[in-house]
Design a protein around this nucleic acid. Structure first.
Lengths: 208, 208
DNA sequence: CTGCAATTTTGCAGTATCTGCACCTTCGGG
DNA sequence: CCCGAAGGTGCAGATACTGCAAAATTGCAG
């Protein structure tokens, strides 16, 4: 994984984004969304309020969007997904490709605990968070459609796979937060995917 | 289904909500979210802007929340779900219980087409719509936990089932919209659930 | 190391969203 | 017919967000 070295400018931009994002998460987790203004966040991060809006379209986004380069990250996920050998089933391949990104939850535990706290306590944040980044949906569906060889506009499968896996991720994050991040989010995700790919058999064990 | 007759006051309240919601959907589908102000919607629905905010916490909500009595509707779903015979598997029982509410998509086709158009074209609306109504999540998880006899705080299953089914509903609505509502949303939902409960086998037919 | 071009930051002015409060109207029950 | 409860409305004000142009910063070529 070469992690291409960008220019200083680009790096600074990512840093500013991270600074605003982590500051927003911290303040909102402490006080609640409506007790924190954009001015508060900007001041604590050392930029002007106007600059805040150069990075985020809304206050909510600052809490929810952890990194500035979501598009590139999505592209990396897609590349990895499409490069997976054909012996691996499409759902498995997709989950594996997602994991690299998902690992940041365990890696940045404190930040994500704060983010989840904020999200659970506020309906507006919740909806922003649960939804996948709007712009990334289409490419992901496209990639799944390509691998399975179906028409993404006509066939349900690509959107269904993406949406249900997204749902699984949300459930995992919720439970991870309820356990105070004392379990591995990646492990929980494995459990979830196993259950999901088994057709959601109920815990008691009765078949469908 | 007795549909309890409420007083005139209650009925008028529901009507006003519906009027604002359908007006908002229509205007936003026509012009786009940011070309419609709260004042526009209120004027077209014949109430003051201040009254608009007695019904909706935000402009987005007016597009996304079709009915004023979501809590009661959720409760009815839960009742139906818990009253389903034990021979039916939990996922099936849950889907069946949801269907009554989901049928409004086919019944109010024009309105839902407009709503989906608005949602697809705007990231903010998209996130609000994809997320289940924040207050209804906990009761639904609670109900699933009760039926399966697990602890909703410790076991992944209830949240996983709810989230993945929610994802399936989203995928169905997306495809339904792409087909201009010319297929039955309920039928699509059946397809989606079948695939989901089979463990998401890929279209080609290879096993997992 | 210097000047130039590109990019980023910032202030400012203006619009729109959303809330609290007080007042008024309307409905429903006795 | 009257009274209490609930909804509707206007107003004042805080905050969110955008467009624009000036100022500052950075990368690079010479």
């Amino acid at each position: 994984m070469p992690e291409p070295v960008k220019g200083l400018r680009e790096r600074k931009r990512l840093e500013t984004h991270r600074a605003l994002a982590t500051t927003a998460v911290r303040l909102v987790a402490e006080r609640g969304l409506d007790q924190v203004t954009v001015e508060d966040i900007s001041a604590a991060a050392g930029v002007s309020p106007r600059t805040f809006f150069n990075y985020f379209a809304s206050k909510e986004d600052a809490v929810v969007i952890a990194h500035a380069d979501t598009a590139e990250r999505t592209q990396r996920t897609i590349d990895k997904f499409l490069a997976t050998p054909a012996e691996v089933s499409t759902p498995r391949a997709f989950v594996d490709a997602m994991k690299e990104d998902f690992a940041q939850v365990d890696e940045n535990r404190e930040e994500w605990l704060g983010r989840m706290k904020a999200i659970q306590e506020n309906a507006t944040l919740h909806s922003r968070a649960v939804a996948m980044n709007h712009d990334n949906i289409a490419p992901l569906i496209e990639a799944i459609a390509r691998r399975t060889g179906v028409d993404p506009k006509a066939d349900l499968y690509p959107a269904l796979l993406l949406s249900t896996l997204g749902g699984a991720v949300n459930a995992v994050l919720m439970l991870w937060y309820q356990h105070d991040g004392r379990v591995s989010a990646l492990d929980l995700l494995d459990d979830a995917v196993e259950t999901l790919l088994a057709g959601l058999p109920e815990p008691g064990g009765r078949a469908r």
